[in-house]
Amino acid sequence: MTQVQGTATDDRTSLGRLIGAGLILVGLVLLALGAYLGPYTYATATPGKLTVDTCTVDYKYRTSTSSSSRKKTKTRWCYGTFKSTDGSVTDLNAELKSDALHQRGYVIEALKTGDTTYKLDRGWVYAIAVGCAWLFGALISLAIGFFATVTGFPFGQASGQGLFRTCLVLVGVGAVGLTVSLLVAFFA
Results as ranks from 00 to 15, higher is better:
L92C: 10
Y126N: 13
T113D: 04
E95K: 14
W134G: 01
G137E: 09
S88N: 13
L101Y: 10
T116H: 07
V125C: 08
S84M: 04
F136M: 05
K97M: 11
A133D: 00
A129F: 01
T116Q: 05
I128T: 14
F82A: 04
V130F: 08
W124H: 06
W124L: 02
L120I: 12
T117I: 10
K112M: 01
L111S: 07
D115Y: 01
H102N: 11
K83Q: 13
G105C: 09
S84E: 07
T85W: 03
A127H: 05
K119V: 12
A100P: 07
D115F: 12
R122T: 13
F82D: 02
K83E: 15
F136C: 04
Y126R: 08
S98D: 15
Y79F: 15
H102W: 12
W124F: 09
V89A: 03
D115V: 14
G131Y: 09
D99V: 07
S98Y: 13
D99K: 09
C132D: 08
A127G: 09
E109K: 03
L96W: 14
V89N: 03
Y79R: 09
N93R: 14
K83A: 09
L101E: 00
D86Q: 14
K119Y: 13
L96Y: 13
K119A: 10
W124C: 00
D86H: 15
G137S: 08
T117L: 14
V125H: 11
S84Y: 11
D115S: 15
R104V: 05
L96S: 03
C132H: 01
C78Q: 07
A110Q: 08
V130Q: 08
G131F: 03
D115C: 13
V125A: 14
S88E: 10
E109I: 00
S98P: 11
D99P: 11
R104Y: 04
F136K: 01
G105Q: 04
G80Q: 08
I128G: 04
C78F: 12
A129Y: 07
T117C: 08
T90I: 15
T113K: 00
V125D: 08
A129R: 13
D121A: 02
G131I: 02
L111W: 08
L135I: 00
L101H: 10
V107R: 12
D115W: 03
L120M: 11
R104K: 08
K112D: 00
S88T: 15
G105T: 01
K97Y: 02
L111G: 01
Y126M: 07
G131M: 02
W124K: 07
L96I: 04
A100T: 14
Y106G: 01
G123P: 10
L96E: 07
A133R: 10
Y106N: 08
Y118L: 02
T81V: 10
E109H: 07
L135W: 13
E95F: 09
Y118Q: 02
D121V: 01
A127K: 01
T81H: 05
T116Y: 05
L92K: 12
K119E: 06
E95C: 02
A133L: 13
T113Q: 01
C78A: 05
V125I: 14
K97P: 03
F136V: 05
A110K: 10
